Simulated assay, not measured.
Amino acid sequence: MEKSILKKAFYNYLKLGKKALREHRFSKAFYYFENAHILGQKHLYRHTVSHIWLLILGVKKQNFKDVLGQLFRIIASVLFTLIWVPVGNTGGSNVSAVKRMPIRKELQKYF
């Protein structure tokens, strides 16, 4: 798969997540940001950006657990992305930061 297609899909999911966030559709925003995370997790900048948007979502929802979890994950993404990432992990603080997960069906075409 060409890297530019993966990159374009990442930014598309990020855009969809931001739109859903503006509309206060938090569950939808979370889903889109998770997809962006899966697509961007092997790229340092995109991986970190996906966690920043998950953090912003946590702040908007006033969810302390999500905010704390994302602060930890932002630091981890900067330190470990180039070394190792758990493939398929959705990036939310509702799952272990080190758990490998199956790639979602709708994203498999990018891998």
Rank of each mutant, 00 (worst) to 15 (best):
W84H: 10
L54T: 02
I103T: 15
K7R: 11
E2L: 15
G91L: 00
N89I: 11
H37T: 13
S4T: 14
V85P: 01
R25G: 02
M101V: 08
I56Q: 03
L14T: 12
E2D: 15
L57M: 10
F10S: 01
K18L: 04
N89G: 09
E23K: 11
L54K: 07
A29W: 06
Q41P: 01
V95T: 11
Y45H: 05
R46W: 08
L68M: 10
G88E: 00
M1K: 14
G17H: 05
L54Q: 08
F26N: 11
H24Y: 14
G58H: 03
P102K: 13
G40M: 10
P86Q: 02
F111E: 05
D66T: 07
K28Q: 13
R46T: 11
V67K: 03
F30R: 06
F26H: 14
L82I: 07
I5K: 15
I38K: 00
K3E: 14
V98S: 12
L14V: 13
F26W: 14
G92W: 09
K65P: 00
K28M: 08
K61E: 12
K99C: 02
A36W: 06
L71F: 07
G17P: 01
I83E: 01
Q41M: 15
V87P: 00
N35A: 13
S96K: 05
S50Y: 08
F30S: 14
K8W: 14
L57S: 07
I83G: 01
S77Y: 01
A29E: 03
I75F: 10
Y13Q: 11
I74H: 03
N12D: 09
R46P: 02
N89R: 04
R25E: 15
K19Y: 08
N35G: 07
L39Y: 12
K18G: 00
A20M: 04
N94D: 15
N94C: 03
F80M: 07
K7C: 11
I75E: 00
L107N: 12
Q41I: 05
F26Y: 15
F111P: 05
K8I: 04
S96D: 13
Y32Q: 09
L16A: 06
F26T: 12
F111K: 03
K3T: 12
S4Y: 13
Q108W: 03
A97F: 12
E34Q: 13
S50R: 07
Q62E: 06
M1E: 09
W53Q: 10
K7N: 08
R100S: 07
F111S: 03
K105C: 04
W84R: 14
S27Q: 14
N12M: 09
L82R: 05
K15Y: 10
I74R: 02
L57I: 00
R25T: 08
